[in-house]
Amino acid sequence: MNNIISAYQSDTDDEEGISSSTKATPSHQSKQGAISGYVSKRKRKHLADNHECTSEVKAAKFDALSFYCCDESNVESYSDTYQVPKKKLISFKEHTTAVTSLDWHLHDHRLLLSSSMDHSVRVWDPYMQECCVANYKPLNAALQVSKWVNGHTVVCGGYSNHAVHVDMNTLQNISTIKQDSFVTALKVHPTDRNNVIIGTYKSQVHSWDLRSDRAVNTYKGADGQILDLEFLVNNSEMVASADVVKKNSSSETVVVWDYRSAVVRSNQVYQEPYTCPSLCAHPYEHVFVAQSNANYVVIFSARRPYKLNKFKRYEGHKVMGYRISMDISPCGGLLCSGDANGQLYCYDYKSSKILTKLQAYNGSACIDCKFNHGLSSIATCSWDGQVTVW
Rank of each mutant, 00 (worst) to 15 (best):
G342D: 01
I35P: 00
N293E: 04
E285M: 08
D63S: 14
L47C: 07
K147T: 01
L334E: 05
A365T: 05
G33S: 06
N235P: 06
P305G: 03
S20H: 11
L143A: 05
V389Y: 07
S266L: 10
N173F: 00
G158W: 04
P305V: 02
V256E: 00
D167L: 04
D243A: 09
P330R: 06
I90F: 15
S261T: 15
S292Q: 01
R42S: 12
V239C: 05
N372D: 05
P85I: 12
K246H: 08
V389T: 10
G342V: 01
E252P: 05
V287W: 01
H28S: 13
Y82H: 02
M117Q: 11
E237M: 10
V164T: 03
L210E: 00
W124S: 13
S66Y: 03
E252V: 12
W124N: 14
L102G: 05
H119Y: 13
V57L: 08
G151N: 13
S236Q: 10
D384T: 08
L355N: 13
S251T: 09
D192E: 13
P190I: 03
Y219R: 09
I35F: 07
Y349H: 04
S203Y: 11
S325I: 07
I226C: 15
H286Q: 13
W383Y: 04
G151V: 08
V205Y: 07
K23P: 02
V99S: 10
I177P: 02
Q83G: 12
V99Q: 13
H373Q: 14
F311Y: 12
I299T: 10
G17W: 09
V264I: 15
Y68L: 00
A134G: 05
S241L: 10
D228R: 00
S66Q: 14
S120D: 05
I198S: 03
A340P: 09
V183S: 02
N135K: 12
V298I: 12
S114W: 14
S120C: 07
A242K: 05
E16V: 02
S30R: 14
V389E: 01
E72H: 07
L186E: 02
R44M: 06
A64H: 02
T253A: 09
R193F: 07
T176K: 01
H28N: 12
T12H: 09
C369Q: 06
T12C: 11
F300T: 06
N150T: 10
R110E: 14
Y284N: 09
P26K: 06
R122N: 15
N3G: 03
V121H: 08
V57C: 15
A134Q: 01
Y345T: 08
L106Q: 15
I328W: 05
K220Y: 04
A98L: 11
S382K: 11
Y82Q: 00
S6D: 04
T356Y: 00
I5F: 11
V297K: 10
K246F: 06
R42V: 09
N74T: 15
H119N: 09
V84R: 13
L210P: 02
V155W: 03
S19E: 03
N194W: 07
K23V: 12
V57R: 14
P85A: 03
S77Y: 05
Q172N: 14
T170F: 01
G342L: 12
S55R: 10
S250N: 13
L112W: 04
A262L: 06
D243N: 15
N2A: 08
S212W: 12
K202A: 11
P26A: 01
L111V: 02
S292K: 07
C336D: 01
V255T: 06
Y347F: 15
Y347T: 14
V205E: 08
